[in-house]
């Protein structure tokens, strides 16, 4: 018996309110913007609540243009290799870039540590790799080198 999505939504909303994040709710989704210390400037965060789990997406404000999509794909593939928690995604149809994390807990309410980590990680990763993404999208940065520079 999975924790019902009403309870999952409450867990997420309690966290956002505790951390003083201003958000909007649409059914079982919470949305807010978060500023970054990177040239990406900010991300749009969406938290989708389901029975027994929630998924967090931090979406970049910029899409990869068609002529840069291969390089961006290579960059996120380098970044994803070895990342323990979550991953970058790119929609190859329109170049949308986002970071996803996910917390599944079944019928057992998750620890506050895990709720905090799951919601924070996508924003932290966009912050960490944001300059590299910009350098690949708008400069001529080599994807592998740009990724290494972010990880130093």
């Amino acid at each position: 018996m999975l924790l019902p999505k009403d309870s999952v939504l409450k867990i997420v909303r309690d966290f956002l309110e505790r951390t003083d994040i201003h958000y909007k709710t649409n059914e079982y989704t919470c949305n807010f913007n978060m500023s970054l210390n990177s040239r990406l400037n900010q991300v749009q965060v969406e938290i989708r609540c389901y029975d027994g789990l929630f998924i967090v997406y931090a979406t970049a404000p910029l899409h990869a243009s068609p002529d840069k999509r291969d390089d961006v794909m290579s960059f996120i593939t380098y970044a994803n290799y070895g990342l323990q928690r979550g991953n970058f995604e790119m929609d190859q149809n329109d170049g949308e870039i986002r970071y996803k994390d996910f917390l599944s807990f079944g019928e057992v309410a998750p620890s506050s540590h895990e709720v905090t980590s799951t919601i924070s990680i996508p924003m932290l990763m966009m912050n960490r790799y944001g300059d590299g993404l910009i350098n690949v999208m708008f400069g001529n940065a080599d994807p592998e080198e740009a990724c290494k520079a972010c990880e130093q």
Partner: peptide
């Protein structure tokens, strides 16, 4: 394929 499971301080149920 990579799959991560964060447990924090809570023991998971076997299904998870």
């Amino acid at each position: 394929y990579k799959s991560f499971m964060g447990l924090g301080d809570t023991l998971p149920d076997v299904d998870e």
